[in-house]
Design a protein around this nucleic acid. Structure first.
Lengths: 260, 260
DNA sequence: GAGTGGTCTAGACCACTTG
DNA sequence: AAGTGGTCTAGACCACTCT
C-alpha cells in the first residue's frame, strides 16, 4: 500500500521472466543468441529448477524464445513485444509506438442487439446493448473506424464516461472490468461509402478488418468490436509455433466456399 | 514403421491434453463449460498433479481454455482448432476444412537474394536462393498467390521435387526439414496488375497479405513467403490473452507514420 | 562424457471461489 | 469450510546436443 512499485512483489517466476525479457529487449541477447541454462539461473536467483522452467515457459508462450532438447534456449525474433493491454487499447498502443493518438465519437446509442451481437456477446433475445462508433487518428490522420458493442452492464459504464476520454479500455479497467482473453478475426474488405467518408478516402480502397471478441476471466464476453484500418496504416504480426498455436485460417464468405 | 497410429506413445501430459481437446471438439464440453479438476484428472489417469497441469498449460497456450484461481477451468471459444502444420501447408488446411486444394506453378528460379530476402532468411550478401511462385485454388477457383523464397539448401530440395506436388511443406518434413516457429505479418493491399491476372479479378481489389518467416528448431530461417489471398476467400483468427500474447500491431508504411 | 532441456513425481502452502 | 487453481521445492530419469 505504501509502495508505488508496480510489479515488485509478484511471483518468483515472473521476476525471472521479466528480467530475461528486459535483457532481451535491451539487446543483451540478440536474435539467435543462447540464454543461460536452467541450472545457472536457478543458482543465480536461488530458486528451484521448476521455477526457472515456468519463467521460460511464459516467454515461449509470448513467442520470444525457442528451445530444443540438449541445447540451450535461443532468442527468436528480436524484440517484438507488446503487452496484451496495448493490443486492446488503441491509445496505449499508439503511445507505445511513438504516435499521438486521438479520437472522435461519431455515435453512441443504446438499442436492441442484433442477432450477431447477441451471439457474440452471449446474451438473450431482446437484450439491449450500447453501440459506439469512433474514428481514431494517428498524428491527425484518420486511420481506423471502431464500431463496438458493449453488453448493457458494461455499456452503462461507458455511457457514463466523458465522451472525449482517450482510452475507454483503461477507464474500464479502473472500474474493475478486466479484459483477459480476446479472439480476433482478421480479413480484407473494400471500404464502404460510409467508411470512405469517415476515413477521407475513396470507396473500395482496401481495408484491414479486425473483428474482436474480448472476455473477462470467467469467460463472459465484455466487448464485440469491428475495427476497420486503412490498408496502409497498420499491420498485425502473429507468432506461432508447434508448441503454442493461437492462429488459424478460415475460409471466407466468398463464392469459393461451399457452405457459406 | 509397422504401426500407423500417429501419436500413441507420446508423453503422459500429451495424452491427457489430447483427450481433453478431443472431448471439447466432440462437443462434450461446450463454450463456457467447466472442465474436470486437476485432482480428478490426476486420479483418473493415475498421474501426478503436475502432469495434469502441464496438459492444461498446453491447452491454454492454444487458446482453448481459460482459468481463474479458485474456480475450475472453462472452455473458451468453441472448437477452433488447427494444428501448426495445417497453418503452414495450404493443402493440409484446405483438406481439413473440406475443400479440394489445387496448385499451379507459375515460376521457379534460382537467383541472387534481394536485400529483403537476405535479411529475412539471415544469409550473407551474394547468397543465392530459390524463388517459387504458385497460384493456389480451392474447388477450382484461384484464391491465393504464394511467392516463397527458400535458402539454397532447402530450395535445392524443393527444386528436386515433382513440380506438381501438392504439398511442399509435407514433402520437406519427410526429408527432415522441420518448421517449428513462424512469424506472420498480416495487412491489406490492393491487387497489383499481375495479382489481378493470376487471380482473375480486377486490379486494386482488396488483398489480404500474409508475409511469413518460418524457422526450424534451432531458429534458422527455412522459408520467407508472401502470400496474397483474395479478400473474400479467407480470414485469419488469432486468440490471445494476458497469459499468452503472440499478437502485435504495427504501424504500416502509409503516410501517417513518421519514419519511412 | 558432460551438459542441457523434457518429463514426471510427491509433497507443501497460499489465494481465491463457491456453496 | 471445502474445493480449486497458483506457486514452489527437491528430487529423479531420460533423450538429445555439443565438443
Amino acid at each position: 500500500m505504501t509502495d508505488s512499485r508496480d510489479h515488485e512483489q509478484r511471483s518468483l517466476y515472473r521476476r525471472v521472466a521479466d528480467d530475461l525479457r528486459a535483457d532481451i529487449v535491451a539487446g543483451n541477447y540478440g536474435a539467435g543468441a543462447s540464454l543461460p541454462s536452467e541450472s545457472e539461473l536457478a543458482a543465480r536467483y536461488d530458486v528451484s529448477r521448476g521455477t526457472v522452467r515456468q519463467a521460460f515457459s511464459a516467454l515461449r508462450a509470448e513467442g520470444v524464445i525457442a528451445s530444443r532438447r540438449g541445447a540451450r534456449r535461443i532468442v527468436l525474433s528480436g524484440p517484438r513485444l507488446q503487452s496484451f493491454t496495448e493490443l486492446l487499447s488503441f491509445s496505449r498502443w499508439a503511445r507505445a509506438v511513438g504516435e499521438e493518438p486521438a479520437g472522435r465519437v461519431v455515435s453512441l446509442e443504446r438499442r436492441d442487439a442484433t442477432a450477431l451481437e447477441r451471439e457474440q456477446l452471449n446474451i438473450a433475445d431482446g437484450s439491449r446493448i450500447y453501440h459506439l462508433t469512433r474514428v481514431r487518428m494517428l498524428s491527425g490522420r484518420p486511420v481506423m473506424i471502431e464500431r463496438t458493442a458493449y453488453p448493457d452492464r458494461v455499456g452503462a459504464l461507458v455511457a457514463g464516461m466523458d465522451p472525449d476520454i482517450e482510452s475507454i479500455t483503461e477507464r474500464l479497467a479502473e472500474l474493475g472490468v478486466l479484459f483477459t482473453d480476446a479472439e480476433h478475426i482478421i480479413d480484407a474488405v473494400p471500404a464502404s461509402t460510409e467508411d470512405a467518408r469517415l476515413l477521407d478516402v475513396r470507396p473500395r480502397v482496401p481495408i484491414l478488418r479486425e473483428r474482436r471478441r474480448s472476455t473477462d476471466p470467467s469467460g463472459t464476453p465484455v466487448e464485440w468490436s469491428e475495427d476497420r484500418y486503412l490498408g496502409d496504416a497498420v499491420a498485425f504480426t502473429v507468432h506461432n509455433s508447434v508448441a503454442a498455436n493461437a492462429l488459424s485460417r478460415q475460409p471466407g464468405p466468398g463464392p469459393s466456399t461451399k457452405a457459406r
